[in-house]
Computed example of a mutant assay.
Amino acid sequence: MYQGHDVRIFGATDVWAHLSYEACIAAMRGAMAAFSEGRASGVPRTFLDLAGGNMFGAMAGSLGAGDIFGAKLISLFPGNIRCGKPSHLGLVALFDPMDGNLSYLINASALTAIRTAAASAAATDVLARLDATTLAVLGYGEQAETHIRAILKVRSVESIRVWGRDRERCVRFADRIAATCAVPCTPVTDIARAVDGADIICTTTAAAEPILCGRWIASGTHINVVGFARSEAAEIDADLVLRARYIADCRASVLAEAGEFRSLLRNGTITDTHIVAEIGDVYLGRVVGRTCDDDITLYRSLGHIVQDLAAARALVDLASETELRCAHL
């Protein structure tokens, strides 16, 4: 009779301890290149609507023939951000490609926090100007912090501006970032002022209506649009979509879930050709992301299972197995 085997478990503390931003950034480049080449794959993610605008999602994928495959089960509670709690909670399961055994269970909240920021940093590295030094971040939750820490790995940021709805929380966040990252960080009460002249902008809020306007954005800016994604929601306005070289993590995800893009599709203002490329195509050299210093580049982050799997594999490779807990399933 088959008895199963040991499943190694990474809790949140394990993930934060072992998964470095540098390793995860490299993993995101490789994963998205593999995805755009068709070597890595995932089925469209599905969401179950819950009360209060919350959701429960499931997604499955593979990093390619003979490589790991797995799934992610996750709850999305955007209101958690206002309470200082993660909005994404759940697990990632990795399976052995040789015999199909369940091999690892990984805390999805910590993994998602790092890999989302790492994916934005990887995109920033190929899309932002090399001389970018000013970073503006909208939001002060976990994704705001991980984005700052990840962006610092790819650009020599000299100043950071942070906007958030709660002034006191924004001030506390900015003070903590300045102290722990050793970069001046200024809380700003007005979004237009926060992004004025910024070289890199990250939107990490739960806003359902546009809070970032294209008319505020200077030529040459790079923007990572990251916040909570629903097909009717949008953090940015139509003008910004139209002005930017719009680059997707996954083209199909943008067409299905990016509210700011879908609304312009519906009214006929744009077609799907407004998506310049998937970021994987840029990594592969198939498409030029930034054509000149004056381009406004936009990376639309919706998240993809191959990113989770690649981050999980990087974590497993980095961690010492003797430090992990085991459970026999």
Rank of each mutant, 00 (worst) to 15 (best):
G141V: 11
R161L: 09
Y246E: 06
L152Y: 03
G227H: 11
D294H: 13
Y21S: 12
T186W: 02
A150G: 11
G66E: 09
A51Y: 11
G214K: 08
E145F: 14
L152W: 04
I275W: 14
P187V: 03
A248G: 09
G214D: 07
C202Y: 06
A277F: 03
R45H: 13
A252L: 09
I160Y: 02
I151P: 02
A40G: 14
A178C: 10
G90V: 12
G66R: 11
P187W: 06
R165V: 13
R149S: 09
R325C: 12
V282A: 09
E142I: 15
M59Q: 13
G220V: 14
L255A: 00
I305R: 03
N224A: 10
A40C: 12
T273Q: 14
A252P: 05
Y283T: 03
E257C: 05
F56Q: 03
T322L: 09
D125H: 10
I247S: 09
G100H: 11
H222V: 13
A218D: 04
A136H: 07
G53M: 01
L50S: 05
F47I: 12
S159H: 07
T116V: 04
V7N: 02
D249W: 04
T203G: 15
R290I: 03
V287P: 00
I114N: 06
I279T: 05
A194K: 11
A31E: 14
C250A: 11
V226I: 15
F47K: 15
T221H: 05
N224V: 10
A150N: 10
D317I: 03
T205Q: 05
K72C: 07
I114E: 01
R286K: 15
R262Y: 07
P97K: 01
A311V: 01
N224I: 05
A238F: 08
G280S: 14
F35D: 07
F173R: 00
H222C: 04
V316T: 02
G259L: 12
L264C: 10
L329D: 04
T180C: 14
F95W: 13
H18A: 13
E260W: 07
D317L: 12
L127V: 02
A136D: 03
G289T: 06
R129Q: 13
V254W: 06
D239R: 08
C185E: 01
E142H: 13
A256P: 06
F77W: 08
A12Y: 02
G66D: 10
A248L: 05
R129Y: 09
L318P: 02
R300G: 14
Y299H: 08
V288H: 06
A65D: 14
A65P: 11
F95M: 13
A179W: 03
R8K: 15
A34N: 14
R172W: 10
D308C: 02
R176I: 06
C170F: 05
A208H: 11
S301L: 15
A319K: 02
Y21P: 10
F56K: 02
E235W: 07
S301K: 02
Q3K: 08
D190M: 06
P78L: 04
T291M: 04
P78D: 08
G100W: 12
S120F: 04
I279V: 04
R251D: 13
G53P: 01
A327K: 06
E37N: 12
S36L: 08
L329A: 11
G280I: 06
R39L: 15
L152M: 05
G11S: 07
D237M: 01
Q3G: 07
I200H: 00
I106E: 05
D293Q: 15
D239P: 06
